[in-house]
Design a protein around this nucleic acid. Structure first.
Lengths: 333, 333
DNA sequence: AGGCAAAACTATAACGTTATAGATTTTTCT
DNA sequence: AGAAAAATCTATAACGTTATAGTTTTGCCT
């Protein structure tokens, strides 16, 4: 079963092979200025030949750098989940760097500060990537105060001073209203996510602005919550459409919500595309497979992951540079 | 911006505080037999008070154990993705252990052996968790030969000798056929995933067995592939139903596939539930939000993740115990 | 009380790396 | 050619942990 392991090469191995001292080898591989070019070439050649890879524990112990980026991931029982895309795109972007990604999930019943504090206090990562950003996110406040490198998937009210990637939800609200108005809809409802999430507010603002310059009415429907959000939304929308029968346009924050809303609408007799138009955010391509009459704005989650990885690395390695920030408009389908 | 860091406590700190030698402190915390009970209690008390957490790099360097479990994750552009659930459930299960999870993704155009070989050769993890298991998976063969701890999300043909979690796809095939037969369907097609995946074969076997004892016909439809599997499936099913108009029952390997198949079916005039019944595997609760007339078998991905984490730990810590194995039937909805 | 075994602790070294200061060689300048 | 400067290399130590071997203390038996 077991096999003889040929003992992993270390700096010592290269030292023996080259006749150079161990620190010289180290400095050669790290491109220190006081090592001759010929020596560097020779050392690198040997390292390549014997497949030398630095021992992470040795580096970490000596330098204090973990070479780890921790993804602190808010999770719940979401139905169409783009977490997988986020995780794999971050990890892919990190693959050709010195960094590894460790995933630290937290759950709806848990305090999101705990994993963040733990990571900072134990020094178990060089940077943190956060999702589920709130307008005044206490995790962001804490990390900024401690000077700990991080990047946000979403913006806070301090957005000018920290790295982030965000989809432009103001623009989404705008596009949604624009599309519904263009189809002649005049009584528009917006199904809102929890309003402490920054993106909810942006979305509402974007929609309101355009509504204000039209003759349409606008209403916010609250209450996405609970263990089984799909079922809850079905009920909320069914009730809401009964109470407000004039509603002819609906904006949803996700494809999941849209699906549930459509079911709720059909339950009280609406025909989508005739009585009611639905417009939704689409983080993963999905709606188009099933209900092409629902209009969506597509958001490329992989792009978010890749950017966040780079932003985190810059926060670690070039803390004095201006933080990497990106605001992206989704693509209307 | 930056803050004074109060210097992380180490064994040395406890040593100074207690007057004991550093190794004594270490052995006390690790419950070594040659340390007195009173001493252990005192050391642990101090450790708790000052919030001592072992330095992972120190431990790793000295012991050679990384305390890392690597999730080697096959990914693609799947639409309804349960990867997020898998990732977070594994990470959650590991949270109260000494282990961290590192995610190493690979992509459709890449050789799945590469990350596995890299991890084993550089010793960058203590165990590996694999998904997308093939019947004769070369990664499994390699890991077994090297005696490297691992756990599989799926089974191989060597399943008796390695840890795994799997959903019983034979049972799924059985349940699907059973349900379709009970609804009076007699011309059943099965949309098959790539047949080198073990679960495809199990599914086919399970379905065939029950078909054999009936008067129904059975057909396998191949060809889930490409960058945009949803679109491909729509076309395949539309074509197939045109060529085989008698088909009245369809078994799909996922909700995604089922959605695409339904669209394809409707495109050529089928009404689901009347002309055609569809039965699908449902890894994340979804179908029920939209198309309750599609019947599914629900699989609890979180359970898979939790089990795999435990199986990996056992493979590391108790290599001589029989491997943890679990085969679970999905729940018909 | 003396001797001996068991229990409890300590000293030393090592894992692989890199920061620091110092030593040697080579180059440059007059 | 000789001295100073620059370039290149080496010796030492340290990061925090634990394995090993060794030492001291305690308890036990006669």
């Amino acid at each position: 079963m077991a096999t003889q392991t040929p003992k992993k090469p270390t700096l010592r191995t290269i030292s023996d092979l080259s006749g150079l001292a161990v620190p010289t080898v180290s400095r050669a591989l790290n491109d220190a200025p006081d090592i001759g070019k010929k020596t560097k070439d020779r050392v690198r050649q040997i390292a390549r030949e014997i497949g030398y890879v630095p021992n992470r524990a040795g580096v970490r112990l000596r330098t204090g750098k973990t070479n780890v980026i921790s993804l602190v991931l808010g999770t719940d029982n979401e139905v169409t989940d783009h977490t997988g895309q986020l995780v794999s795109s971050i990890a892919r972007e990190l693959r050709d760097t010195r960094y590894h990604m460790i995933v630290t999930p937290y759950f709806p019943d848990e305090d999101p500060m705990i994993p963040v504090r733990y990571i900072v206090e134990t020094g178990s990562a060089d940077a943190i990537i956060l999702n589920r950003i709130e307008v005044a996110d206490p995790r962001v406040a804490y990390l900024m105060e401690r000077g700990f490198p991080f990047a946000c998937y979403g913006r806070t009210k301090w957005k000018d001073t920290h790295p982030y990637f965000d989809f432009d939800n103001g623009s989404f609200g705008h596009q949604a209203v624009n599309s519904l108005l263009a189809s002649g809809r005049r009584n528009i409802a917006l199904l809102s996510p929890p309003q402490e999430q920054n993106y909810a507010q942006d979305m509402i603002r974007g929609a309101s602005e355009l509504i204000a310059s039209s003759d349409a009415s606008f209403r916010i429907v609250d209450g996405i919550t609970g263990d089984d959000p799909g079922k809850v939304i079905q009920q909320i929308i069914a009730d809401d459409l009964t109470r407000h029968p004039e509603t002819d346009g609906l904006i949803c924050p996700s494809t999941t919500a849209a699906i549930a809303a459509v079911v709720g609408g059909e339950r009280v007799g609406r025909v989508i595309g005739r009585d009611l138009d639905v417009f939704a955010k689409e983080a993963i391509p999905f709606m188009s497979y099933f209900r092409s009459e629902i209009r969506t704005v597509r958001e490329d989650v992989r792009m978010a992951g890749e950017f966040l990885a780079r932003a985190a690395i810059q926060a670690i390695e070039e803390p004095d540079e201006p933080p990497l920030q990106k605001l992206v408009k989704g693509t209307a389908i």
